[in-house]
Design a protein around this nucleic acid. Structure first.
Lengths: 344, 344
DNA sequence: ATCGCCACATTAAACGTTTCACTAATTGAC
DNA sequence: GTCAATTAGTGAAACGTTTAATGTGGCGAT
């Protein structure tokens, strides 16, 4: 056992030049195109480079050209099931475009987000995609030396991609109304992000006249619900609960199970996001899908465009959402007899 | 709306030097320590640097020193719930150590793994952590110009960190035996990784004499189980199923529900890995926990050590695992009366 | 023969750092 | 007051590239 694998120093452009008996410049031109290099030389250089396993040193290229072919991705928390898909698509798309992705995961520490961007700047990334959890605008207004695209926060002054949260809220409301629900509880996400407000607003406005929200509570970002909310559930005065995101909805499912409330027969539950968990819980969650991969792709496009043309007008892209009907919603019970149990 | 945020060119060491009226070298020494720089100058330089928002250009540093302060992480699939935690801890620990992490997610394309490493090499990372899904050794034997630590595959010739899969298998077996199970089904993961064999072996050997495995099937890496396995489940000739990993176990839970088999009263299910899903499914999964974060940390240490001393002896680190008892295992039913339903 | 032109290849500067070798100025000992 | 020793700071090379500017021939036209 024991000996570490051999580790050849990687060949530099000099090595190739020497071996091919031409100048350094010739090698560069031959490999990258540009300049005027004859066919024989070009071929020879290619040959030698190949054989030496020469790969241009990106750092050196970066220093010389200012292009590092590197992009940064700032995420709040990979353990939040919402982000892996985003990270994956982004990395994949970026790689396809020739870029390499540097990852910063702040593990929920909001203050590290800006630090992270600083770090990325220093590393010479050409652009950053930022899934912002901090409050909107002001924090992005500190000027960075690198183009930034924000995902999820609709700031006016920065390129960003957001989802049609308002519409999503509407879809859920309409669906619940169609299913005959008239008394509804709301669990709003406790976050500073405006998306939660849009969802809420869309939901409420689409409900108007057809159903009433009996109560509304703020839920922290975790599956375990605070006692206050369990109590609300236990009152059993609603036939459906709208949750600000799927994580909360999963929490409700679990709480309902513990409280002996049947989902969806006694209580319908809807979420938002369509994270992977939504389809493995029992019952599977009816929710609104955010096209996460698409968002990542759009963010990349926006970013690449801005890198190419730094002074172009700011763009805001709003991607559509989709209602995913699964098993956590049923027709509202016609009789509310069981309600008496909870109500005095 | 419209105008993109101002984007100052970041200050270079020259700018600082000019502004502080000292030489470039002085700035470098003042900031990095080294050289002999007086207190007044040092202070002034610091001041100016701070005020100009100077951050040394990593690429330039990399070119000059050969140290890019960058590490690579090659993952098969972030959507696999096993990896986000790993990625997060690794990035976090690496950042703490001053390194920045470049991510490659091959989305399950095995052939991209080596390509990915090549790309990382080119980018000048100082080391790579590789969660290998390709077969063992031979693929790692092609010599890279950069130190590599493998997670999960116990190759002899490379630093690596693995888990005590064999012991984990034993834990599960003993637990099931304790709970009185004597007829057991096995669902092995269909992969080329040796870890699955160790789990299997540990399980089987610890079972010896106390219980018999009635059948064993290979399960693909997905929650939806193939018909063959559903059929096996439907035979109802076992009181417990051991699954090669949690994903499979979740699949079994779901299949059981569909087939009307009660877990854990009729069928006990155990998994392996303790991915986040394990604790949100119903019932919560009894499983063996892999200390993923710890593994990431260990991998980082191994890598950093090797970077510091490239010729040191290869190390293999095996981290311990832990049996997590939850709700998917119950005492084996004493009467097997219901078995007749399934059996002719 | 000379000129100009073309195709091809090379020289050298530059990117932002670090760091070695060196100079200038100050100190202390005699 | 001289000299060595110390201290503080500078100049310039080097890292691996790219690329503008400059050379070299050879060849056809004059």
């Amino acid at each position: 056992m024991g000996r570490p694998p051999t580790m050849r120093k990687s060949a530099t452009i000099r090595d190739v030049a020497r071996e091919a008996k031409v100048s350094i410049a010739a090698v560069s031109y031959a490999l990258n195109g540009g300049g005027t290099i004859g066919e024989e030389v070009r071929a020879r250089v290619r040959e030698v480079a190949q054989q030496l396993g020469y790969r241009p040193n990106r750092s050196a290229q970066a220093v010389r050209t200012g292009k590092s072919m590197t992009l940064g991705l700032v995420l709040p928390d990979l353990n939040n099931p919402y982000y892996p898909a985003l990270a994956q698509s982004f990395e994949r798309a970026a790689r396809q475009a020739g870029y390499t992705v540097v990852l910063i995961d702040t593990s929920g520490h909001v203050d590290e987000e800006v630090q992270g961007i600083r770090r990325l700047e220093q590393h010479g990334v050409e652009g950053v995609v930022w899934c912002q959890t901090a409050g909107p605008d002001e924090v992005v207004s500190s000027d960075y030396s690198v183009p930034i695209v924000v995902i999820g926060t609709p700031s006016l002054s920065v390129d960003n991609v957001t989802t049609k949260d308002y519409e999503g809220g509407q879809y859920l409301a309409r669906h619940l109304v169609e299913m005959g629900h008239t008394r509804i509880g709301m669990l709003t996400a406790a976050s500073v992000l405006p998306s939660k407000d849009d969802r809420r607003l869309g939901f409420i406005e689409a409900l108007a006249g057809h159903a009433t929200v009996m109560w509304e509570e703020k839920a922290p970002f975790a599956i375990d619900l605070p006692e206050r909310i369990r109590a609300a559930l236990e009152r059993r005065d609603v036939s459906a609960v709208m949750c600000g995101n799927d994580l909360i909805a999963v929490g409700v499912l679990r709480a309902a199970r513990q409280l002996g409330i049947q989902v969806p027969t006694e209580l319908s539950v809807v979420g938002f996001d369509d994270i992977p968990w939504a389809s493995i819980v029992e019952p599977e969650l009816t929710t609104v899908r955010q096209p996460v991969s698409e968002m990542a792709a759009v963010a990349l496009t926006l970013l690449l465009d801005r890198i190419a043309e730094p002074s172009r007008a700011v763009r805001h892209f709003k991607v559509g959402v989709e209602l995913i009907k699964r098993q956590s919603v049923a027709e509202a019970p016609v009789s509310w007899g069981w309600r008496k149990i909870g109500r005095s």
